[in-house]
Design a protein around this nucleic acid. Structure first.
Lengths: 218, 218
DNA sequence: GTCTATATCGCGATAGAC
DNA sequence: GTCTATCGCGATATAGAC
């Protein structure tokens, strides 16, 4: 999934480095075919071990999935929703909106991460899926954060935008998810960044940077 | 998946009835956990047979999946995209838009059908998935049909709507898909019909019926 | 900390009786 | 048209050597 390992492995014990390597492999393979279709042997082979070696570091397959998800969110949420990671951190609404668009751009370059979340969020709608509660809570939090963001944007906008924050939040989140499915099937047909920008612009909420020069570094 | 069997089983040979019963069971189970996680033995037990009995009617698991999908589309596409089923059939754009909203309403009542497509479309983004080409083509066709529909609506609208049909088509399809994922996780938080109507209204493309009395019979 | 070896299970698919 | 029986495979998981 990741184009590069998640956490720098230098200053860690051997066990921690091995754990990280295993999670990298699991994330990579889950992103290809989802959770159910990946075996411990697949992950072990990708990480250069046997499946028995894996189970020395993790109690089972489910535990690995949940760690993969938690690690990814820890890394990714910082940009758009600093409130999740460091509550109380101030950030201008327009900056956060630009961060959101940057996230879309970054997603367009990391097929694996998009595939991971698309497949797992769909699988996890099943109440019996190990990640069901994780995704339910994740969507709740993201909707709340987006609602707050849209509310702040509405106040900053000139002219003031006539939008209902909670409605736009659900729609925007749904739009981004749905675009990802189509983009995975046929990337050329779905320019995600432009389509998200067009949606925001239609509401009078366009980010205040140039459409072409959005920095991906964020 | 279906709250009721797909085709009325009365006037059919025993073989055809058995086939239909098997497909009902397969659809039901695929809608719960996707394709990969369901076994032939699961389907057989649900249909009241052994897995060997299944394989008298279908050459394999893949063939069953593709038949489930094709049967569902055959039934469902008629309402919104008569062009798919009977090319050349004329239908006013506003009627087709109402048909689309009715489809959203009907989906809100059939959890299983929504779960089936949400899980399978996500799984099928994997190029190696048996339904990959099916979904790729399906999205192409639906995007084209929606583009045509939005174009026709733009012409009929009063005042004329300022929208780009191809852009709105991708966005609308993505919105509906994304809403379904959130709705499956937490139905109360996602009133799909209202959110789709709000999106259309924002573009000046609202369907011309009352918001509350949309008939589901379509 | 990672290995080999093994136990136990369920899979998709086939062959052949009835 | 459906069954039982069986094949070959790969799954998760455990035990114990090194």
């Amino acid at each position: 999934m990741n184009d590069r390992p998640e956490d720098a492995p230098q200053r860690r014990s051997k066990g921690e480095r091995t754990r990280a390597r295993i999670l990298d492999s699991a994330a990579e393979l889950f992103s290809r075919t989802g959770f159910n279709a990946v075996s411990l042997r697949d992950i072990a082979a990708h990480a250069g071990m046997t499946h028995a070696g894996l189970l020395h570091h993790f109690p089972g397959k489910e535990a690995m999935l949940l760690e993969v998800l938690a690690r990814r969110d820890r890394t990714d949420a910082r940009t758009v929703f600093p409130g999740i990671v460091r509550p109380g951190t101030p950030a201008r609404a327009s900056d956060r909106l630009r961060g959101l668009v940057d996230l879309v751009v970054r997603n367009s370059r990391t097929h694996g991460m998009v595939a991971l979340y698309t497949k797992l969020s769909a699988e996890a709608t099943d109440p019996g899926h190990p990640a069901h509660h994780y995704f339910k809570e994740r969507y709740r939090v993201v909707r709340a954060e987006l609602t707050e963001l849209v509310g702040a944007l509405r106040a900053e906008a000139d002219p003031p935008a006539d939008v209902e924050p909670a409605v736009v939040a659900v729609q925007l989140l749904a739009l981004m998810d749905g675009l990802q499915t189509q983009w995975l099937l046929e990337p050329e047909a779905v320019p995600m960044e432009a389509l998200v920008r067009a949606f925001l612009a239609g509401l009078g909420l366009a980010p205040d940077d140039g459409a072409g020069r959005s920095p991906v570094s964020a």
